[in-house]
Nucleic acid binder design. Structure first.
Lengths: 163, 163
DNA sequence: TTCGCTGCAAATCCTTTGCATGATT
DNA sequence: AATCATGCAAAGGATTTGCAGCGAA
């Protein structure tokens, strides 16, 4: 299904369907919300196909980006991260990222509120918005609980922690 | 004024006030909304102080970031960009970036709508939002007009342009 | 068979770092 | 005078590219 679609898309663009390309797409596909780096994709694919090279992974990602099958996200940690796009889910646009400052976990979050913001921009500034990207930094549930627990335990610690 | 503040802040942190540091801060300060790259800052400062090295610019930026005088923005073009922060204006948080896909121009945009989004997130997901970053990609006024003009001129061209 | 795709290694790009010299307090 | 900051050049890390050989059409 996804395989056939992919083959068709490649064919339509005069590109060849190779094991490497399929495996890279599958890695991204199966890791849905994990926002993999190139290196991570490389490791995943290498488990099943050890002869693959990192350069091929980068080239394939580039290809998938151009085909609009994959989108890239910059989380500000110096790595480009990639997530599967339109092909198997339609959550392509209009989803934002919650990024945990503690553990780095990324949660995707769907919300159309930004449509409102875009409208507002159109009215006040002359700028035609095509796409948007929202990142919210904070603390995820797990890390929040952990912090809470530590605070409770440490209530009697006399030291304030000036930082 | 700004100079003195800067001197004070440096002194408070046991740092020395050097010509290079002042010039880097001034470059960022005077180019308010331009979101300069390190290389651009380097060029600006070099005009007035040719013996400065790029490494010093990077080190100074790092310093200014740590002092919270400057903030960094990733526009996804592979360069880190920097903008002056809290010191001379209080527009630190809550301003978003409109990025022109055509000419790369960056327009800063102030809006508190995201507070609403943050509240909504707090309700639906257990995630404590600390800060957020919004980038809107599209076309700026100048580029829109240019496109319009080209379209008008080219109305009679028979070719559709299958892309 | 043809031509694109791959793997490897070298190259590139932005940014950081080591070290001896130079400037600031 | 004592450090800290600088400039230079070399190192670093992510991504890219060149090229000969391999594999899909």
């Amino acid at each position: 299904m996804l395989q056939d679609d992919f083959g068709r898309i490649l064919r339509e663009h005069g590109l060849k369907k190779t094991k490497q390309r399929v495996l890279v797409l599958e890695a991204l596909s199966s890791c849905g919300d994990k926002h993999l780096t190139a290196e991570e994709i490389y490791e995943i694919v290498k488990a099943e196909f050890p002869e693959i090279g990192l350069a091929t992974v980068y080239r394939t990602i580039q290809l998938l980006l151009e085909l609009n099958l994959v989108e890239s996200v910059q989380l500000g940690d110096g790595y480009a991260r990639y997530e599967i796009g339109k092909i198997n889910e339609r959550k392509a646009h209009r989803h934002h990222h919650l990024i945990c400052l503690e553990c780095g976990k990324v949660i995707s979050f769907r919300d159309d509120l930004l449509d409102e913001l875009e409208k507002r921009i159109k009215e006040s500034v002359s700028f035609q918005v095509i796409n948007h990207e929202v990142k919210l930094y904070g603390y995820c549930e797990t890390c929040l609980e952990q912090k809470r627990r530590i605070e409770e335990e440490g209530t009697c610690t006399a030291f304030g922690g000036a930082s």
